[in-house]
Amino acid sequence: MIPATFDYEVAESTEHALELLGGREDAKLLAGGHSLLPAMKLRLARPSLLVDIGRLRDLSYVRDAGDHIAIGALTRHKDVVEAPLLQEHCPLVPSAAGQVGDPQVRHRGTIGGSLAHGDPASDLPTVMLTLDAEMVIRGPSGERIVPAAQFFSGVFQTALEPTELLVEIRVPKLPSTTGCSYMKMSRRAQDWATVAVATLVERRNGSIGRAAIGLTNMGATPLRATQAEEAIAGGAAIVDAAPLIASGSEPSSDTAASAEFRRHLATVLGRRALEEAAGR
């Protein structure tokens, strides 16, 4: 399979990337290429210009930024998985990043590319939504910060304007009393999630306080299981909250699973992810 023809420019800096991106209507950014190139090979995507930002090494980092950890958008999945700062302060991120694709994909694919692609079956968008992470976006008129809850707007759609670039992701430092889990069910190890559930649970002397629950591939965007979260906040036990996890979701049916089975899986995986995060 061979993509349709396109022009290609290498961005030397973020500013240069923005300039190139703004200069052509259907230009696309190319980072690791692991979301875009497969679509182009199938000729489902036909950008006229690719702006290669893969050489902007200054956007590849994991930094302690005081109250949060800052992750450069061009940080590869492999480097996210292995980042000690994330393992210490926000292990949900490396745990999920380690489940993206396969080793070859993780060697090339980037966190920013994965988030900007906006695939509801993808792991990292759900994780960012669950963490209430923030997306730092740079555009022609400067920088803006968009919370994850407002970033994912539809199937392959995000808050990014065509002229904007995701530069950084900010994830919270989780207190040691917060447990987390990412439970993914896929048909094969390399596959996208049939369904996955991310959880954060505040552990309080043997009981649980607040919980955050995020769902992968249960609708057009990653979702929060707000009814279940509210039930737990109201004191419900995990087993009682779990049946509410799929409420309000609208998963699709495809060759991997029907919508009905996805709802069922979400409740099972959600219960297990809550229990794991709660340390049980």
């Binding site: 190319l30 692991h34 690719l50």
Partner: peptide, 11 residues
């Protein structure tokens, strides 16, 4: 390891 079908020569 990288899948060379998912990388452009120019990259």
């Amino acid at each position: 390891s990288v899948k060379s079908c998912t990388m452009l020569g120019v990259q």
